[in-house]
């Protein structure tokens, strides 16, 4: 867990409004504390941030220097200016939302989120119209960090990446707790759960949640 020194405050700004962060807070933590909305998908308070979905990008400016960063991980420092809606941020967010629409076209949550930012169609090729998973890896992190069993992982790399169990067979390490289903932001894990836990009727005894 983060070691937080609650006494020390960091002064910076978000969209021109003065902001104060406690030591250990990220830009996202501070923005939420102030009631400023930044969209997120792969972020969950129960696990360490991973910065995979890139939806929570903001622009950090310091004089002439400027960089697009992910707010879920970026630690603010004294005097930095954060912009949640600059042109650069909008460009990244628009393209990321289009990518999401192509990645998981079957997800209602993603469609609603994209529409919120005015993105209704995608220029990317849709490979699987049934796909709901956007490979944010939240399920994998919850399984490892919270449940502590590592029953699922992200396999392969690049465009072939997928969530699966080792050797793609049901994994006896799975305790069928359902945490992965709960945290999944698009509902994709629901359909995969049986492939992970296998035949529940055959699974009893120690370490099993049901």
């Amino acid at each position: 867990m983060k070691e937080i020194d609650t006494k020390k405050l960091i002064n910076f700004s978000i969209n021109g409004t003065p902001a104060q962060a406690k030591e250990g807070w990220t830009v996202l933590d501070t923005a939420r504390n102030m009631g400023i909305h930044i969209p997120t998908l792969c972020h969950h308070e129960a696990v360490e941030p991973s910065g995979a979905c890139r939806l929570c990008v903001v622009e950090a400016r310091d004089g002439a220097w400027s960089k697009v960063v992910v707010s879920c991980m970026y630690p603010p420092y004294e005097g930095v200016e954060i912009l949640t809606d600059s042109e650069r941020v909008k460009n990244v967010r628009r393209w990321v939302l289009e990518m999401l629409l192509a990645q998981c076209p079957a997800s209602r949550e993603i469609k609603a989120l994209a529409a919120e930012y005015g993105v209704k169609s995608t220029r990317f090729r849709i490979k699987n119209p049934e796909e709901q998973c956007m490979l944010c890896g939240l399920c994998v992190r919850v399984c490892a960090e919270v449940v502590g069993v590592q029953a699922i992982s992200l396999g392969s790399r690049g465009v072939l990446k997928h969530v699966s169990t080792p050797y793609m067979v049901p994994n006896r390490a799975c305790i069928a707790c359902g945490s992965c289903v709960t945290v999944c932001p698009t509902g994709a894990m629901q359909a995969r759960l049986d492939k992970v836990r296998g035949d529940v009727s055959q699974r009893t005894g120690h370490g099993f949640a049901h």
Binding site: S50, G51, A52, C53, R54, V92, W95, V96, M99, L100, A102, Q103, R123, F124, R125, M134, L135, G137, L154, S156, R157, G158, V159, L160, K161
Partner: peptide, 21 residues
């Protein structure tokens, strides 16, 4: 790079694929 992308973040995983197209 598209082949070597780890695929963790969307802009690299899908962005490079689309640029390549």
């Amino acid at each position: 790079l598209e082949e070597e992308s780890c695929g963790k973040c969307l802009p690299c995983r899908l962005g490079l694929e689309a640029m390549l197209e």
